[in-house]
């Protein structure tokens, strides 16, 4: 999928959660939102994009996507056990 569109969508999400004064909580909420509502292929793409430098991702979005990467890895790890 068009990565620029995904970056915009991810930033849109982080703009909402930026209101939370607790940044870590905000990042966790972003990750949770992505996990709940984004199809796995889209999640994989945004995580890969972050790994490749994450152009266009704003700071809080990056934190959220990083968290998402951890969440998704956990699940993958759990499934492969």
């Amino acid at each position: 999928m068009n990565i620029e569109r995904l970056v915009t969508m991810a930033n849109d999400i982080s703009h909402y959660f930026a209101a939370d004064p607790d940044q870590a909580a905000g990042a966790a909420a972003i990750a949770d939102h992505l996990k709940k509502f984004w199809e796995p292929g889209m999640r994989k793409q945004i995580v890969a994009h972050l790994a490749g430098g994450g152009e266009g991702l704003e700071p809080l979005t990056r934190m959220g996507v990083q968290k998402l990467a951890e969440l998704d890895n956990q699940v993958t790890a759990a499934n492969s056990e």
């Binding site: 999928m1 068009n2 199809e39 796995p40 292929g41």
Partner: peptide
């Protein structure tokens, strides 16, 4: 057990060929 594509995502995915 994972969410699927929403309508706008379907359009994006169609345009990228998946």
């Amino acid at each position: 057990d994972e969410p699927g594509l929403r309508i706008p995502n379907m359009f994006e995915a169609a345009i990228d060929g998946s």
